[in-house]
Design a protein around this nucleic acid. Structure first.
Lengths: 241, 241
DNA sequence: TCAAAAGTGTTGGGCCTACACCCATGG
DNA sequence: CCATGGGTGTAGGCCCAACACTTTTGA
């Protein structure tokens, strides 16, 4: 195992979750005081990421970012684009920051998005915060574009890949699932029609269990079965909202 | 302009075209004789690519590969994935090859696909050859996987993005377009239904012109209008074969 | 005149949309 | 007993798939 980092290669992660009908991105505070006067020279937000170690794969690097934040392994992660323009790092603050890290100013970053279920909590949330994707703070580098690209990729895949279920806890209600679609697509859906479509899919399995307490009337729980989905997908079946 | 290359970063290009109802990939002969006996140590095929120069963007590097082969600029190109596993270069031949080039054995490659119209000819085709994507020769590195990934990406986008038209000359007949869909999706389509769908799209514009000579009966030519498409796309319109 | 590809319409069924009220429970 | 979110059925229309023959020309 070689723990030295490749000084021009990093992985950035767009962690996403839906909470209270809002799509949120996790950002890390970037802060650097160069002068005694305590004037922050760099004071904005960036995506969580890591330089890639000599012995690590790209995906392993994304896993590591995720583990440090959540304490958990194994996750759906999607690589969606690499960013490596020569002038990608060009503002004074970005250059300052990169140099302070002993990295090169021509850094390639490979971007992943990782979707968290709404009930997941972060293990370590110091220096890190969830932001509404429609109301982002000042971001460093080209990270605003990276977030936009991630969101667009997700939207483009939502009808053909079972991505949505990553936003869900293992057991979920149909109304919760509908909300996820509505938030991601930014529309309203007809509840009766939605239920018909969803319950017609063999890979969305109704459980005996009902959830009590959340609302007045108990609601039936469903789960997504990857096993069943993988059988079906061969014949071109998709979710079509 | 800094012409030194970044020794751990390359761009590989999957050039694709459809010819005689066959989807073809362009490969470059890889050949290296290390010993006087003239035994070829490396003798297989790889994707055309380049190391990235310090002053070049990733996309510019893809453009350069394309220009050297076709003599033309400006092209639709799609970045679809980066490959950077630590053990990505691991066979004896691949290691030998990379070292002979003075590059590092931990190289990240960013992959693009570029689609050529069926009537386009290569400017410089020495050391390079078109192969049926279903019948590839011995390939170096992980280039077989890269080609598979490219193909899957195209298939996944074919119904939602106007990718197919890149396989077409500017002016084309409906039957030619149908063939492209059939080759890419590996199915047969009903000619009457296909024509109805296609001619219902305002961005596929019939021309006055007819093509003579190719077949007995002259056939009407159509063109794809990006202008019109861009207007329409906002309202969620797509090609739906 | 015939071979070869271009081009053309209709019908039945399935699927999708639109739409309003009752149910089960907690407070 | 009432407030709250959970849950249900139908009818009309649109779209899609299935299907076979005529047209135009070159040879």
């Amino acid at each position: 195992m070689d723990f030295r980092k490749i000084d021009n290669l990093s992985v950035d992660c767009v962690l996403l979750k839906i909470e209270n009908k809002v799509l949120k991105v996790l950002l890390r505070k970037r802060n650097l005081n160069l002068f005694a006067e305590n004037l922050p020279v760099v004071d904005d937000w960036v995506l969580p990421g890591h330089y890639v170690l000599k012995s690590n794969n790209l995906g392993e690097t994304a896993n590591r970012v995720f583990e440090e934040l959540t304490g958990e392994k194994h996750l759906n992660k999607n690589q969606f684009r690499a960013y490596g323009n020569a002038a990608r790092i060009n503002t004074e603050t970005d250059l300052l920051w990169v140099r302070s890290r002993g990295a090169t100013t021509r850094t390639i970053t490979v971007a992943y998005y990782l979707i968290l279920a709404s009930n997941k909590k972060l293990l370590n949330s110091s220096g890190v915060e969830w932001f509404n994707i429609k109301d982002l703070p000042q971001l460093g580098f080209d990270h605003e574009k990276i977030i936009t690209d991630a969101f667009n990729d997700i939207k483009s895949k939502i009808n053909t890949e079972p991505l949505v279920f990553n936003f869900m806890p293992v057991k979920f209600t149909l109304n919760e699932l509908q909300t996820v679609f509505e938030v991601l697509l930014d529309t309203e859906l007809d509840n009766r029609n939605f239920r018909k479509k969803i319950t017609s899919k063999s890979y969305i399995v109704p459980l005996e269990e009902k959830r009590k307490g959340q609302s007045k009337k108990p609601s039936r729980l469903y789960m997504f079965s990857n096993d069943v989905y993988n059988q079906i997908v061969e014949t071109g079946y998709i979710i079509n909202i």
